[in-house]
Simulated assay, not measured.
Amino acid sequence: MKLAVVSAGLSLPSSTRLLADRLTSALVDRVPEVEVEVIELRDLAVDIANNLVTGFPASRLRAAIDAVTSADGLVAVSPIFTASYSGLFKSFFDVIDHDALAGKPVLIAATGGTARHSLALEHALRPMFAYLRAIVAPTAVYAASEDWGAEGLSERIERAASELAGLMGKEQPVRAQVDEVVPFEQQLAALRP
């Protein structure tokens, strides 16, 4: 079984790569036999740009595309810039044939400086992979600067990894625990002076 991990972080070290590594580790804990190939898009930026204007991938880019398209599962992590995925992230998926990810299980994740950008997973990444007909895990993982070491990130990582393992046919996903629902009227009453 093969797992491709695409990290679009630009810096070194990168919080995007750190999140990709934590997601990968959680998946490998569930599927120890999986072979992992990490693709750092930062290293392929020039090749991606050249492919966009020439239509021909260089050998390193071709190897990355082959790794993604032949994998049994995909972890795709992008930094969020201006409320959406990075241009490098989008450009990489633009050079992949639009039918190549059909039916492929994908776990989407992103990093950003503030929690304000967390919905980018739902309004940018998830629709892109839906357009490519991939099967996106229900739990997307967003990590803002304040999330590192905070309560909740590890739980989201574990739940997302479990869902991806399930989509890859290796595990039954862990069901999320739902806190008691507080009626809306009660929430509004608590806000009144």
Rank of each mutant, 00 (worst) to 15 (best):
68 V>T: 01
32 P>S: 13
156 R>P: 13
22 R>T: 15
76 A>F: 10
1 M>S: 12
71 A>T: 07
148 W>Q: 06
120 A>T: 06
176 A>E: 14
52 L>I: 08
18 L>Q: 14
171 E>A: 14
184 F>R: 12
146 E>G: 08
15 S>A: 12
90 K>S: 05
8 A>G: 10
184 F>I: 14
48 I>Q: 04
163 E>W: 04
151 E>W: 12
106 V>P: 01
90 K>H: 02
3 L>N: 04
78 S>D: 00
171 E>Y: 05
110 A>P: 00
140 A>C: 05
71 A>R: 08
38 V>F: 08
161 A>C: 03
12 L>I: 15
96 I>L: 11
23 L>K: 14
14 S>N: 06
101 L>T: 11
1 M>N: 12
161 A>D: 11
158 E>S: 15
105 P>L: 05
164 L>R: 07
188 L>A: 10
2 K>F: 08
179 D>I: 15
124 A>V: 15
121 L>P: 03
141 V>R: 05
130 A>V: 11
92 F>C: 01
27 L>W: 04
98 H>C: 10
19 L>R: 09
131 Y>A: 05
113 G>Q: 09
102 A>T: 15
125 L>A: 00
138 P>I: 12
96 I>N: 00
93 F>K: 09
40 E>H: 11
73 G>Q: 05
64 A>C: 04
44 L>R: 06
55 G>R: 03
107 L>S: 05
36 V>A: 05
6 V>Q: 00
97 D>F: 02
83 A>E: 09
101 L>W: 00
35 E>W: 04
175 R>M: 10
24 T>C: 13
4 A>C: 00
33 E>D: 15
27 L>H: 01
